[in-house]
Amino acid sequence: MSRRPRSRRDRHGRGLRGRLVPEGLPLARSRGEQFDDLVLDAVEDLERRWEKELAGVEFAVEDVPWVEHTSPDDVVHDTDVLDDGSVPLARVLPAHREGGREVPPRIVVYRRPLELRAHDRDDLADLIRDVVVDQVAVLLGRDPEEIDPTA
Rank of each mutant, 00 (worst) to 15 (best):
E51D: 13
E51P: 06
P88H: 02
P94E: 06
P105G: 07
W66V: 05
A60M: 06
E102N: 02
R117F: 06
V39Y: 10
R111C: 10
D36R: 05
G56F: 02
H96S: 07
H77D: 12
L38H: 11
K52R: 15
V39I: 13
E115I: 00
L25F: 12
V43A: 01
R101H: 03
R49N: 14
A55N: 10
E51Q: 08
F35N: 13
S71D: 12
V92T: 11
P72G: 12
L54N: 07
R29H: 14
W50M: 09
E115W: 06
P94A: 13
D84W: 01
E33H: 06
H119P: 03
E53Q: 14
A55K: 10
A55M: 12
G32S: 15
V75T: 05
D36K: 02
L40T: 13
P104G: 06
A118E: 14
T70S: 15
V108M: 06
E102A: 14
D41C: 00
S86F: 11
E44I: 15
V81I: 01
R101C: 02
V39H: 12
G100D: 11
R106E: 15
D80M: 00
R101E: 11
V43G: 06
V81A: 02
V87Q: 07
P104L: 10
I107V: 14
P105L: 03
D74P: 04
P26Q: 12
R111E: 05
R106K: 09
H119Y: 13
F59V: 04
D78G: 11
A28D: 03
H77Y: 14
R117G: 02
H96C: 05
V57F: 07
R97T: 11
A55P: 00
T70N: 04
P94W: 09
H77N: 13
G99Q: 13
R97S: 08
V109N: 11
L82V: 11
A28E: 00
V64Y: 04
V39D: 08
P26M: 08
V76Y: 07
G85P: 11
V75Y: 10
V64L: 07
H69M: 14
Q34C: 13
L25Y: 08
D84L: 10
G85S: 09
G99T: 07
R91N: 05
V39L: 15
H96K: 09
E58S: 04
P88C: 09
V109C: 11
S71V: 10
R31H: 15
D120Q: 06
E33Q: 13
G24P: 10
E98A: 13
V57S: 07
R106C: 09
L82Q: 02
F35W: 08
V109L: 12
V57G: 02
F59M: 03
V61C: 14
D80G: 01
E98H: 08
V64W: 01
V64A: 09
G24N: 08
R31C: 04
G56A: 10
V67K: 00
D73P: 08
R101W: 03
V75C: 05
